[in-house]
Design a protein around this nucleic acid. Structure first.
Lengths: 353, 353
DNA sequence: CTTATTAAATGTATGTTTTACATTTATTCC
DNA sequence: GGAATAAATGTAAAACATACATTTAATAAG
């Protein structure tokens, strides 16, 4: 039979009717006699008829396929995002084309043009760190391919996006440090061209301000700087560090390794809080206190929003959502008292109609 | 212009030539005057012509798309496999459709029929644990869709596969235990319906046998059994445990947690070896000695083999490859002396022509 | 100068499905 | 019986690119 090679005309020929009759019977659209419908459906089942998706896509100009652009697969965070996206996309009868850009702007550009030429019905994109030129996304929008940004937003473009609000999470962390008696707090930042990195550093600064502490640029290290470990050691040894606020869990892991080298105990001597709640946080010891990001939920929301756009192509409505984070206290912070619930939900709905 | 809506006939009309001339000029197939070719290419570039993949797929009956069936995304191992597959698939100009079955046989079946109806050119499959019925893969093969099994093989079906040979890795681990002076070795096994679980347990037994040690079923615990921690504690406290051979790194992590509760030092009192070299192995402390599985390489090989099958549809040759594992010594085992190189490469080439 | 040969360009059919429109058949009413 | 209506089915076009066949023009050979 070969690859469901039975097509609508085969059934039509066998039954002595026309192809359109068969099509109607199968898609129960127009009027058709109950008798023929039954006959057609029966034979279609018997022969295992499967419509050819290419013919349908060619005709209807839609592929029932969604493109997902991710930085990489091996990062656990994106894996969870992917999982979330996959769930709703499957439920809604779409298929997923996944491309990674590995942080390369060029690959990211290629990904968008590729997905466009593959005629995906829409795209969820988590763009490369260094991307500042969004021309390729503009091309997509001009071709009426809806785009939803994930994890990273672009305010210049009129697109929906789903991000976590890193701000409250950082402030919550600083609050906790202060409440547990740590006021000498340093920050180890991430890649400087990454918006989340900037956000978390700003959150750190705001947290200090809110607690009446002064901001000292000397206390902000950059994990991309090869010298950060040495600077960190110097600060620690000079006794100027009581707590470390880190860009993410991996940086926190590295910081704790350094502290161990210096025979500093965590959290007795120095407290550490990470960001993202990656698996590393639960496997390292001490287990890391960190800020949980609802990665899977983000993936789900992004997919839901994208599918909404696909189904409402004429609407100008945009969904710009910031999902709340959650401070998870484990072993790398000193205990203090029952943590208050700082849950924050922000939903903005901007409309450019 | 809308979604690269410029098509071949637009260019043909503008230039006053026929559609097929334009097609020929663009695909530089048949003979055509240099002059017209130039004109066509120029206009195609200017208008940003992109061929419609559906029309091509409909005509050529191939989608340039490969289906990948994985258990899940969140397991780091499969993420790396995915990464490997993705690399070569991209290089060879194919696209990837990814489906997960989450261990459900029904979902796995759906995945195969879905991918078949999407007319993928071939499928790489890592089937569900409990799958014993391979009818749906047989359907695929009958429809001339090549299948390559990954991580899990099916000897009943004439397909290529890529698996790791868990056996030598386990034996190497036991050898190492013995050489470093640990002879009281217990095994903590994985889910009992999982073939890798069985393989690793058998490897453990063979390793003991090879070293002249007796096998005691009392020393084999099952991590799926809720009581394993208590049994483990009892064994440890009775002084019958010098080394622990674990089904995978997560089990090893749990085992070490238990040992810590009992104030046993790793590796001074008890050595532990895991399996798989998951990230947890490098993040926990002590860092875990474990058996590295070439996940990415497996993904790459599977993709290479599948593409070979796609390009050689008439050949009956099968590639059945077992990739070697590698014992990585970190901090959870006592040091002994320079580790000898036990690399083992097995390549079987079976042909049913 | 005619015929054969080559080159260039064009036209047509194919792949599969859907749908707007057209046609046939059956039924009902005056 | 003929017109009007409804129901069922058929026809053809559209979606887009390409393989194959054919036509037209130009050149070489006899």
């Amino acid at each position: 039979m070969g690859r469901g090679r039975v097509k609508i005309t085969d059934i039509a020929k066998e039954l002595g009717v026309s192809a359109s009759t068969v099509s109607r019977a199968l898609s129960n659209g127009g009027r058709i006699s109950e008798e023929t419908r039954k006959k057609v459906i029966e034979l279609a089942n018997k022969w295992g008829y499967k419509p050819n998706p290419f013919a349908i896509s060619l005709l209807k100009k839609q592929s029932k396929t969604i493109g997902l652009i991710l930085p990489e697969f091996t990062h656990h965070y994106f894996t969870k995002v992917l999982n979330g996206v996959n769930q709703v996309v499957n439920n809604e009868g779409y298929h997923l084309f996944i491309v990674t850009h590995e942080g390369s702007f060029e690959k990211e550009q290629n990904a968008t043009t590729m997905l466009n030429s593959m005629h995906v019905d829409g795209i969820i994109a988590s763009y490369a760190r260094g991307t500042t030129d969004f021309e390729h996304y503009l091309d997509l929008l001009e071709d009426d391919v809806p785009v939803v940004f994930l994890d990273r937003s672009c305010e210049d473009l009129d697109t929906s996006y789903v991000i976590t609000d890193d701000f409250p999470g950082c402030i919550e962390s600083i609050d906790y440090f202060v409440k547990s008696g740590n006021t000498k707090i340093i920050h180890i930042s991430g890649p400087h061209n990454l918006s989340t990195s900037f956000m978390r550093m700003t959150g750190y600064k705001e947290g200090l301000k809110k607690n009446g502490l002064s901001i000292n640029e000397k206390y902000i290290l950059n994990s991309e700087d090869d010298e950060w470990r040495n600077r960190f050691k110097t600060l620690v040894l000079s006794g100027e560090v009581e707590a470390v606020h880190c860009f993410n869990d991996y940086v926190a892991f590295d910081a704790i390794q350094v502290l161990r080298q210096l025979d500093k105990r965590v959290p007795e001597d120095i407290s550490v809080i990470g960001f993202a709640d990656e698996p590393v946080a639960t496997y390292m010891s001490p287990q890391l206190s960190t800020v949980f990001q609802p990665a899977e939920e983000m993936g789900r929301r992004a997919a839901e929003i994208l599918i909404w756009h696909i189904r409402n192509p004429d609407s100008d409505q945009l969904y710009c959502e910031q999902l709340p984070t959650n401070l998870i206290l484990r072993e790398s912070t000193r205990q203090i008292r029952k943590k208050e619930n700082l849950k924050s939900v922000v939903k903005v709905l901007k409309s450019t109609g």
